[in-house]
Computed example of a mutant assay.
Amino acid sequence: MRELVYYAAVSLDGRIAAPDGAFDAFPIEGDHIDAINAEWADTVPGPLYDALGLTAPRGRFSTVLMGWNTFAAGLPLTDDPYPHLEQIVFSRTRTAADVGAGVRLTADDPRGVVADLKAQDGADIWLCGGGVLAAQLRDQIDRLVLKVNPVVFGDGLPLFAGGYAPDVFVRERSRAFDSGVVMNEYRRA
């Protein structure tokens, strides 16, 4: 069965972006980037993958899920960020004219969409963000992969923007990089 994997960069204080949605405070150079490009190539946007001349195999994920704000962060560069994946963007206010041809925009309940996706054949499902969508899908997340960055935001968009409801995850792997980034992988207990 396919798993829903929330793979995201996060600050030391649990923020995935600044209050305005910017995420440029996260370091974009260092040995952690080499590991991402080699081991998590599906998460590198198509235009960047091509521009960097990457050849790392893809196939860890076959679908990416995004809330509108996460998708919109890339709009200055492309309206089709992950052409190698089935792309699903959740919004109740946008129309198909707001996304590229390779992107499915839906106002459907994310929980039902994920249940349907999990029942289909394919590689895992990447929950790219944001925090509101992650909060809606929290009980369906099978794995968390958090790139913990050595920066404190103080304020901003949280990893999960929802109410208090503890869920237990078990750490499977932790990998520290010279850049200061620590990649932690957890599985639902």
Rank of each mutant, 00 (worst) to 15 (best):
L54A: 08
L54R: 09
L54K: 10
T55A: 13
T55M: 11
A56T: 10
A56D: 09
A56L: 13
P57N: 09
R58P: 12
R60Q: 09
R60T: 06
F61D: 02
F61M: 07
S62K: 06
S62P: 08
S62D: 15
T63L: 05
V64A: 04
V64S: 02
L65W: 02
L65M: 05
M66I: 03
G67R: 02
G67S: 09
G67V: 02
N69Y: 03
F71E: 00
F71D: 00
A72I: 04
A73N: 13
G74I: 04
G74T: 06
G74M: 14
L75F: 15
T78D: 09
T78Q: 13
T78Y: 15
D79Q: 10
D80K: 11
D80R: 12
D80E: 14
P81L: 11
P81T: 09
Y82A: 04
P83M: 06
H84K: 14
L85W: 07
L85I: 10
E86H: 11
Q87Y: 07
Q87D: 06
I88N: 07
V89P: 00
V89E: 00
V89I: 09
F90L: 08
F90N: 01
S91E: 03
R92S: 14
R92E: 06
R92D: 04
T93L: 07
T93C: 09
R94G: 03
R94L: 08
T95K: 01
D98C: 13
G100W: 02
G100L: 06
A101P: 14
A101Y: 13
G102D: 08
V103I: 06
V103L: 05
R104L: 11
